[in-house]
Structure formats: C-alpha cells, structure tokens
Amino acid sequence: MDIKNVLIMYRKDLREIMTLRTVKYSIIIFPVIFLAILLFILYFSYINLGSVNGVPNILNSTLNSIPYSSKGKIFYYLSMNYLIFLSIVPLSLASTISSYSIVGEKQQKTIEPILATPIDDREFFLGKLLAPLVPTLGITYAVIAIYSVFSDFITYNYGYIIYPNIPWFIVVILFIPFSTVLMILFTLLFSSRAIDPRSSQQFSAIILIPVLVIFFLSMLIYSLESILLIFLTAIVIVFDFILFKITIEIFNRENIVTRWK
C-alpha cells in the first residue's frame, strides 16, 4: 500500500469539501453553537447550584461517590455528562463531511478516472476514511479543550479542577475517535447506495441514537462511569471492526464501477 496515494486522495477530498459553502459553514457553525449552548448551561447551572439534598433520590449514591463539596459534586456530575453529550459534535461533523465525499464523486462521475490510475482499492478507501476523520477530530478536540478549560475555570472557585481525569481520557482518546470512525463507516456504507448527500446523512443519523442512550444512561449510573465508558468503547470497536470488513468489501472496484449509482 502506498501512503502517498492515501494522502493525495485525502488532501483532494479535504480541499473539495472546503469548496462546498454549505458544508464549510455547517462544520464551523454547528460546533460553535453547540459549544456556546453547553457553556451557557454550565455557567447557568453554576450560578444557580443548590445542594445535594435537593436532587432526586436515584442520584444520591452517584453524587455521594463524587469526592467534592456539595455544590462541587453537582457541578462535576453535570460537566462530565455534558462532556459525553459533546460526542454528538464529531458524529454530526463526520456524517456531513463523509456523505459529500462519496456522493460528490458519484455526481461528478470521477470514480472511474480515479480507478484507472495506479491507486488501489485500499488506498482509495483509506483516503475517503481519513478525509472526514482528521478535520472532525481537530474541531472536536478544540471544542473539548474550550469546554474543559471553562469547566476547570469554574471549579477552580471550589478549590479543585475536574479535567483532565480518567473518564475524560477515555472519552477523548478512545470513545470519540472510535465512534467517529464508526459514523464515517456507516456514512460511507450508505453513501455507496445514495444519490444525494442528504439521504446518506439522514440514514447515518441512526447512529446518534446510541449516543443519546449513552448520555441518559450515564446520567443515571454515574458511579460506573469509567467502566461503563470502557465497556461502551469496546462495543464501538467491535462494530468498527465488523463495519470495516463490510465497507472494504463495498470498496471493491468492481462494485464501485458497476453498482454505485
């Protein structure tokens, strides 16, 4: 495999995506708005924090396991949950970028001339995988960095900082990259059958459902946080592996030329 070809494909895709005004603005505006809302909620929560005694019973054991003062416990709890909620940012970005990447080739009929060059199927596939992955992770990590610094800035008033901590590392290093890859694979899979980017985006949005489930689950069983996150990441990796196998089959040149319509 020639990494040079992967990078040529990746750079071309990235540049092409950036020429699409709708995509360019949506990958900038969406994370900014999403982050602004979360920061606002976080700040609003901070200035209106009550005591642990005021929260529902179901959360008592969870909050008691957090080793901070009463108000600090609640803020920590909220901040960690919103951090998981931030996974929606990379999933949404990855879906937007990768759906244009395949459908764009189909609409412009550029696949056959590419396959006539010495590039092989895996190089083509990896280029397509990398193009949405790199900018998505770049933007997501910038969002997480701002979010984490903001949270730490608030908790500094209570005499401690939250981030980085072990669950944060699990989310940043494992959960987000692997779930982003899963989203890209899903979108590439749907894109090979789709005739326009929107329909492939809509199909791949199915994957947002488990993220929302994780978000609500994590709010209830917070004390299992690290184990739960590792468990969920392991499930994502298994799905990544299965989907990778399926997608690489679909990225077979005979399939691409004769079945991708």
């Binding site: 071309k12 699409l20 764009g104 412009q108 009929k109 550029t110 001339p113 060059t117 010495p118």
Partner: peptide, 16 residues
C-alpha cells in the same frame, strides 16, 4: 494502469 491512459465516456471532473 501506470502505462495506460483512459478517456472515459463521460469526462468526470471536480466541477469546483
């Protein structure tokens, strides 16, 4: 493929 050139039936270019 490296010593072959192909003119496809439809030109196929990145329009932007």
């Amino acid at each position: 493929r490296s010593i072959s050139g192909l003119l496809t039936e439809s030109p196929g270019f990145y329009e932007r």
